[in-house]
């Protein structure tokens, strides 16, 4: 009698259990990574953006901003590290949106898996992409002559902090992904939000030449704190604690506000 069914004991209970969840997240992460293989262009942002941004800013604006390219490299590249996690976090929303639109999500929802598995696997795959992006950025920076004055541990701390902040942005990205109609709209809105956040921060230029109202914005902009923290860590400067704490506070705050909203909306739609 039990030979015909696949998992009779579990089927009767309807419970999934931790090993089951892990297996589902693993299978779905694999799926997300396989999608990249079929659509390599989707890696352009992760692979090329760090390169293009570095070249563009170091050689076009570097001299003007810092009076020298070498000084500017040390200034801007750590900030770029912080920005990378956020850009990639925004891709979670686009991916989620297209899963809903194409009906793949409906297929998943008719399977006996936890709904959180779909989300966690998206985050896992984006983390892989972000790690690749960080690696490319750092290797390219070293080739251009970036000097890692802080140690290796400090570098890892900067990457970890960028990832952590990126993870908190994932929730906002998810909300956008579920609220907006198309993947293009998600991308468009994400750009609109990101552009002023990126440039209205200390990532690309010191803020002291900016007008007062803009300085007020850059001071509260968490990307400034993130850039300052990464810069202090990678350049081996002492004053690390303050910006790191601000970034941690923002990450926790954003997560506390947006994670329940995103999860509630996700549960409602699934």
């Amino acid at each position: 009698m039990t030979t015909a069914t696949l998992a009779p004991a579990r089927a009767e209970e309807g419970r999934i259990g931790l090993p089951g969840h892990l297996r589902h997240v693993g299978a779905l992460t694999r799926r997300n990574l396989m999608r990249i293989k079929a659509d390599p262009e989707s890696m352009f942002d992760a692979v090329l953006m760090p390169v293009i941004f570095t070249v563009l800013f170091v050689y076009v604006f570097g001299g003007a901003i810092s009076g020298g390219q070498d000084a500017y490299k040390q200034y801007m590249i750590p900030g770029l590290l912080g920005q990378t996690g956020i850009t990639l976090a925004m891709a979670v929303g686009t991916g989620l949106n297209s899963d809903f639109q194409t009906g793949v999500m409906d297929r998943f929802r008719t399977l006996p898996i936890g709904r959180s598995s779909v989300l966690l696997s998206k985050i896992a795959a984006e983390t892989c992409r972000a790690l690749l992006s960080f690696t490319i950025l750092i290797v390219f920076a070293l080739i251009l002559g970036f000097e890692l004055k802080g140690g290796f541990l400090e570098l890892l701390a900067a990457v970890g902090l960028s990832l952590l902040f990126g993870m908190s942005i994932v929730w906002i990205s998810m909300l956008l992904g579920m609220a907006l109609r198309s993947a293009q709209a998600v991308q468009g809105v994400a750009m609109l939000v990101l552009m002023p956040m990126q440039f209205g921060s200390s990532i690309f230029a010191p803020t002291d030449t900016m007008p007062g109202w803009l300085q007020a914005f850059t001071k509260v902009n968490p990307l400034s704190a993130l850039a300052d923290a990464c810069r202090a860590l990678m350049n081996g400067q002492g004053a690390v604690a303050h910006p790191v704490l601000i970034v941690l506070a923002w990450s926790i705050g954003i997560t506390a506000v947006f994670a329940p909203l995103a999860v509630a909306r996700f549960r409602k739609r699934t």
Binding site: T5, L6, A7, A11, E12, E13, G14, R15, I16, R31, R35, T102, G103, V104, D106, R107, T110, L111, P112
Partner: peptide
Amino acid sequence: KQLRRTIGLTGQYASVD
């Protein structure tokens, strides 16, 4: 959850990747 183990669905919406 138990029900989902007993069904298969082919529709215009529940789609493959």
